[in-house]
Simulated scan of single mutants.
Amino acid sequence: MKTEEPTASLGQTLEWLRKELAEMQVQDQRLLLTLRHLHSVLEELRTESAHWEDSRSSGGTSPVRARAGSEARGHPPIPTKRLAQLLQGVESRRSSLP
């Protein structure tokens, strides 16, 4: 029987950890993009809702859509198709042990 050297096993384990950490960083970046997009959509909806409420209470006719979304803060919105791709990438995260 042949036994593995501890250093080879340790080296393989460290390499696996590096790979997993790199994958986690990519996942974190995707989650951050998704979070930023969702935050901008929520802000836009809140602004729009408040505007509608103000116009209803003041008896206005047709409210103009206010935009306080991602454009105002310098974050371009993520297209819906891209967001779906990002979410699929998040869900496809695998757990692989050495």
Score class of each variant (00 low, 15 high):
residue 65 R to L: 10
residue 1 M to N: 13
residue 43 E to S: 08
residue 50 A to S: 14
residue 90 V to Q: 12
residue 26 V to H: 02
residue 56 R to C: 10
residue 14 L to C: 03
residue 29 Q to G: 07
residue 91 E to P: 00
residue 16 W to S: 13
residue 65 R to T: 11
residue 64 V to P: 01
residue 17 L to S: 13
residue 60 G to W: 01
residue 19 K to M: 09
residue 39 H to M: 06
residue 98 P to Y: 02
residue 32 L to C: 06
residue 42 L to E: 09
residue 28 D to T: 12
residue 20 E to D: 13
residue 95 S to V: 12
residue 96 S to G: 06
residue 55 S to P: 00
residue 32 L to A: 14
residue 72 A to F: 06
residue 95 S to C: 05
residue 24 M to D: 12
residue 89 G to H: 03
residue 67 R to S: 14
residue 71 E to N: 07
residue 48 E to K: 14
residue 74 G to L: 04
residue 31 L to H: 01
residue 43 E to V: 08
residue 39 H to T: 05
residue 60 G to P: 00
residue 13 T to M: 10
residue 61 T to L: 12
residue 46 R to K: 13
residue 22 A to V: 06
residue 3 T to S: 10
residue 23 E to P: 01
residue 19 K to Q: 15
residue 35 L to T: 13
residue 93 R to A: 15
residue 63 P to S: 01
residue 49 S to P: 01
residue 72 A to C: 04
residue 43 E to A: 06
residue 58 S to Y: 00
residue 51 H to Q: 13
residue 76 P to G: 07
residue 62 S to H: 07
residue 19 K to Y: 04
residue 93 R to W: 15
residue 30 R to Q: 08
residue 61 T to H: 10
residue 38 L to F: 05
residue 69 G to W: 02
residue 16 W to A: 15
residue 4 E to R: 12
residue 50 A to F: 05
residue 98 P to H: 08
residue 39 H to C: 04
residue 71 E to S: 15
residue 24 M to E: 15
residue 10 L to Q: 07
residue 71 E to D: 12
residue 39 H to G: 02
residue 28 D to V: 04
residue 12 Q to K: 11
residue 72 A to Q: 14
residue 1 M to E: 15
residue 79 P to E: 13
residue 26 V to T: 07
residue 65 R to C: 11
